[in-house]
Amino acid sequence: MLFHLSIEADDAKRTAEVLAEIWGGTALPFPPVGFGSWMAFHGADNGTMIEVYPRGTTLTETDSDAVGTMADRPRGSAVHFAMSTDRSMEDIYAIAAREGWRAKYCSRGGKFGVIEIWIDGCQMIEVLTPEMQRQYLDCVTVANWRGMVEAMAPELLAA
């Protein structure tokens, strides 16, 4: 189980509030990493959360806890995540439109769908409605993935 992950955003508070809204959860400040950081808690209150740092924050190793420091770097990132929601596609599109975030339906390999949302035009997340979650869980298994790799590039499994 993944308990939490972190991303950065232009407006960390607003982004955490919107993610919490999609999850039916709560957004709260997260000062341990740095003032201006926020967390979106899942509505199930099971410890699952998304930490949202102000854009430019990097985590730095210290002798005690990691701390957030600001750094100049490009806005793009390889970091993305898929999150579940109990809301409808229409609700998700309306929330994204309200925030000025691009959102579109995508089929991943023709196997399962996601709503791809671009926070601040540079941070991609995937939102899965209940129907999409069922498709994902039916598709993304170790056995299915192994079969796909064997069909596409069997030499990768031989290594």
Rank of each mutant, 00 (worst) to 15 (best):
W118R: 06
G68V: 07
M124A: 05
T129F: 08
V142H: 13
Y53T: 06
G147N: 14
G147T: 15
P29L: 02
G76D: 07
I95N: 00
I7L: 01
A94S: 10
A96T: 07
I22L: 09
T85L: 01
A97E: 06
G147V: 13
M83R: 03
S107C: 11
A71D: 07
S107Q: 06
R73Y: 11
Y105K: 12
R75L: 15
A96Y: 01
S88Q: 10
A44C: 09
E61P: 12
Q135P: 10
R87A: 06
D72V: 13
A151E: 15
A40E: 01
T129R: 03
C122S: 15
A71W: 13
G25Q: 05
G110W: 02
A71G: 10
P130Q: 10
D86E: 14
T60M: 10
P74Q: 12
V127Q: 01
Q135Y: 05
R102I: 04
A9Q: 08
T48L: 13
A44E: 01
L28M: 08
G56Q: 09
V127R: 00
D65V: 08
I50Y: 00
E155H: 13
M89C: 11
R73F: 10
D120Q: 02
G25F: 01
T60C: 14
D45K: 06
R87V: 03
G121M: 00
P154S: 13
A16T: 02
F112Q: 08
A44G: 12
T48C: 03
R98S: 09
D138G: 15
G147Y: 12
A40W: 00
G110P: 12
L28V: 09
G109N: 10
V79C: 07
I95C: 00
M70E: 15
A20W: 04
G24Q: 11
I115R: 12
G76I: 05
L19K: 10
C122D: 12
G24R: 09
